[in-house]
Write a protein that binds this DNA or RNA. Structure first.
Length: 115
RNA sequence: CAGGUUGGUUGGGCAAUCGCGGUUCUGCGUUGACGGGAUCGAGGAAAGUCCGCACUCCAGAGAGCGCGACGUCGGAUAACAUCCGGGGCGGGGAACUAACCCGCCGGAAGAGGGCCACAGAAACAGACAGCCGCAUUUUUGCGGUGAUGGUGAAAAGGUGGCGUAAGAGACCACCAGCAUUUGCCGCAAUGCAAAUGGCUAGGUAACCCCCGUCGGGAGCAAGGCCAAGCAGGAGCAAGUUCGUCUGUGGACGAUGGGAGACUGCUCGUCUCCAUACGCGCUUCCCCCUUGUGUGGAGGAAGCCAGUUCCGGGUAGGCCGCAACGAGCGGCGCGGCGACGCGCCGCCCAGAGAGAUGAUUGCCCAGAUGGCGCAAGCCAUUGGACAGAAUGCGGCUUAUAAACCAACCUGAGCA
RNA sequence: GCCCCCAUCGUCUAGUGGACUAGGACGCGGCCCUUUCAAGGCCACGACCGGGGUUCGAAUCCCCGUGGGGGCA
């Protein structure tokens, strides 16, 4: 996921967190908000409750890697935030991917149900 | 060979595919939220933020006070509380003890103050018991005594003698310790030796303090710059005349005026403003009136004018800031060493919600199990602590395991 | 990232100039009182964040670590 498709500005995060709709999962939380722009933007975040810097980076990399093959199937015009939870640092990529797919399905953001 | 100790190095390797960040080059019937190539991309601790610097801003005539840090000697260094080499004391390490390791280091004689609970007579000096002398009403008073008892973490140098009423460095010998002087090795601390002195001086300065050295304060969210806007501030400046039309409110034109921009200046050109002042609008006060701020009269204050300049702070963007450095690697020289000097070569992460990940194969340590006398073979498993954010030098803390070198002790062989 | 502060029973705190077997309140447990409950009374349990050091002696002083909190024009 290239950086221009990420959420970067602090106020964007604030807006999505405050006005978006959130979906919870034991491993992560998804917050979604329809956006005015034509493109999908995704922010991945891990707070201090996840653990040390190594564990936070690990959690964010897992979420990005789990998200990467799903990107073409996700509906555009959305701003998304994925928030890591403490258990995520100790899980595998396959479990993370299942969690992300489940969250996206619940938010009805996956366009083609091919996979 | 066994055991122990210290120092150093590494911190899995190679390959393939997909993906990410920086720099740079580049392609185009499609200049894109486009594509392609090259190259670089975490650590020994990046961590804790405990010290020291660089750098930046603020303050400041100079100096001092205060506060803080440090304190054996010599050296290294940009600097340090760090490092190297030496010294002293205490502790650990085979209950002694080797290599070696750990901690501490000015001053309590030489300024002064404070504290030393409980116990004990007494904590730096005041006699509880005991001993001795004198007096005495025979059980007390006065005096001497730190040699004895017990207390305590600490009790007036120790042993022996002489001496005495009893005792005491009061005196003597030896020992321990202190100060001064001299000599020797050493740059020095220190050590060794001798002489002399007074014979004794408790501990605590990680209590205040004294002496010496150093430090102005804050920290890259420092700090600098930029576009737009806002808060705010400052300057300048009014209402000319004439004509036409008219619905009498005004509109248009001309002339002149004001402010500004362009320019080095003038001319010139351009933009904006004004002749909005009335039966005006807003608020307040007061009077009359009304079902009612319903209607009316009066008074006060404000508005009906713009334009130019200056101009924040936060958020945003750029710089600081990632390629020239207390830089890295190699070689040589000097030094016991920390380190320094010279030559050659190299350019080596840099974001700004934060780039290193995923999958697969082979190999390398390691662990477990099985087979084997052994070398070894097979299977399964499996890679510590941990992620740069202004940079650097240290310290401290976390860390699976491997390799190399040196030293010590013991045993054996030559 | 940079810079500060704090840590004492389950909770809130006192003690910080060394003497402590660490005090108090609420809570918890037991007993008494009451017909019972509450209130009250008595008793008990219960802590110096961890490790080193200085000192005769450390909650206190010094160093290192751990955890928590706060600030940054």
């Amino acid at each position: 996921m290239q950086s221009r498709f990420r959420l970067t500005r602090s106020e964007d995060f604030k807006r999505v967190r405050q006005t978006g709709k959130s979906y919870a999962h034991p491993l992560a939380v998804l917050v979604a908000l329809p956006s005015a722009s034509q493109n999908l933007r995704i922010g991945v975040t891990a707070g201090k409750t996840v653990g040390t810097a190594v564990q936070r980076n690990r959690a964010k990399r897992l979420l990005r890697e789990a998200l990467r093959p799903l990107l073409p199937a996700i509906a555009p015009n959305w701003d998304l935030i994925l928030i890591a939870r403490p258990k995520l640092a100790a899980t595998s990529l396959a479990e993370t991917r299942e969690a992300v797919i489940a969250l996206l399905n619940r938010a009805k953001l996956i366009l083609s149900n091919g996979s």
